[in-house]
Simulated assay, not measured.
Amino acid sequence: MQIIFEYHDVQASDSLETLAREKLENLGDKYDMVIRGDVFFKLENTTSNDTGKICNIRLSLPGPRLFAESSHDNFVDSLTESIRDLERQLQKRKEKMKSF
């Protein structure tokens, strides 16, 4: 699986990329239909201290793309929640494909 990282108003981080790559490759091993993952990290000014560090992930696979976004006080939590959301979406897609 090809993985592309983009940063908006955020300094690039090797540790974040390593963690994201590891989690996405696990998804790719489990769901071989995934072709590519685009990961976006960005900062947003918010009034809450619990949000503002956003992780968006878009997965390319046959059919419509899958997308997940989350905002927490750190990028690791945002990444983890986005991956969890994508796993649920992939499971639904896989079940739908089995029924055809």
Rank of each mutant, 00 (worst) to 15 (best):
G28Y: 04
P62H: 13
F75N: 01
A12S: 15
G28T: 01
E87D: 13
D32A: 08
D73S: 10
P64V: 04
D9S: 09
I83D: 13
V10C: 09
K30R: 13
M1V: 14
D9Y: 03
I35G: 00
H8Q: 15
P64M: 09
I83K: 14
L19E: 14
L27R: 15
M1W: 07
R84Y: 14
S15K: 15
K92C: 00
S13R: 15
N56R: 11
E17Y: 03
S70I: 00
K23M: 13
K30S: 07
I3K: 10
T46P: 06
N74W: 00
N56V: 04
L66V: 06
L16S: 06
G63E: 10
K92I: 09
L66N: 09
L86A: 04
F67S: 04
L79R: 04
G52D: 00
L16T: 06
N26T: 10
F75E: 02
I57F: 05
G52Q: 03
M1T: 14
A68I: 07
S82I: 06
S99C: 02
D29F: 13
T46Q: 14
D73C: 03
S60C: 02
S60D: 10
N74F: 00
K23D: 09
N49T: 13
L66P: 08
D9I: 00
V34H: 02
H8I: 12
L66E: 06
S48M: 07
D9H: 15
E25Y: 10
L90K: 06
P62T: 08
D9P: 00
R93Q: 08
H8M: 04
G28I: 02
P62I: 11
I4D: 05
F75G: 01
T47Y: 03
P64G: 10
L27Q: 13
D32H: 12
D85M: 11
S60N: 11
I35S: 09
S70G: 00
D77I: 00
N45C: 06
K30H: 06
Q2G: 01
R65Q: 09
F41V: 03
F5L: 07
A12L: 04
L79V: 02
R21P: 01
M1Y: 08
K96Q: 12
L66T: 06
F75R: 02
R65P: 04
L59N: 02
T51Q: 09
E69F: 01
S48L: 10
D38I: 11
F40N: 01
S15H: 12
L61K: 08
A68M: 12
